[in-house]
Amino acid sequence: MDLSSRTDEMGAARSAPGLDARPLIEARGISKIYTVGEQTVRALDEVTLSIRLGEFVAIMGPSGSGKSTMMNLIGALDVPTRGAMELDGRNIAMLSSDALADLRNRTIGFVFQQFNLLPRTNALRQVMLPLLYAHPRPADADALARHRLEQVGLKDRMDHYPSQLSGGQQQRVAIARALVNNPKLLLADEPTGALDSKTSEEIMALFCKLNSEGITVVVVTHEPDVAEYAKRRVLFRDGRIVEDIAQPGFLGRAAE
């Protein structure tokens, strides 16, 4: 019931794209500077980026251009050296470590290139993991996890361990895990990097479907084919945004 009501709310937001919705992600002049020995590396250099609820953004750029660094800041896993990063209206630099944990738990779902599944843990328990850290903890965690696994097409793989699943299936488990706590934002850093092209297409089609249901999706990718699915494309180079364009002909349209 909770699930469907959330979907309706999202659907409403999406059906009025003209009215500028409150930005979900608001980066204002953020820099991330690493110091290694004598050297300083500007991984991000005065980046300003705003992403609204319901968007589907592909972040592209050459290796080392700061894509992952940007994703970590968007995901509240890290804080910028300079500038303000607001997530869902809150400046992450101001939040305590507990508040950041709750923000990641409630608002954000992560999907990683290397899946990052727990060893010796079956698919169902992998998916339940974020619910174990939720406050308050849902009583029907088991049912919520099953629902998400069904949604990603793994109805009959609930008891499988990571070693018993294909790469694509493992990534689906990771996606189910990212979705289980009803996040507003799905962050995926090269989610198809370890998968073949057919499986990549399936995963991207799944993202399109989720986005059409109202979830904001941000995907980092090297592959232009993959970026085709997004409605908007942001290009990074040397820690700066060099291109930010809407893709009216995005592939995801087919799913809608």
């Binding site: 995901g75 896993l77 470590s97 507990d98 944990a101 709750d102 990641r104 738990n105 409630r106 992560f110 990052n116 727990l118 060893p119 993991l129 974020p130 850290y133 939720a134 895990r177 706590n181």
Partner: peptide, 12 residues
């Protein structure tokens, strides 16, 4: 694993 647990909402 610790990093992952933190990423999905594990507090300190």
């Amino acid at each position: 694993e610790i990093g992952l647990r933190m990423a999905v909402g594990g507090r300190r």
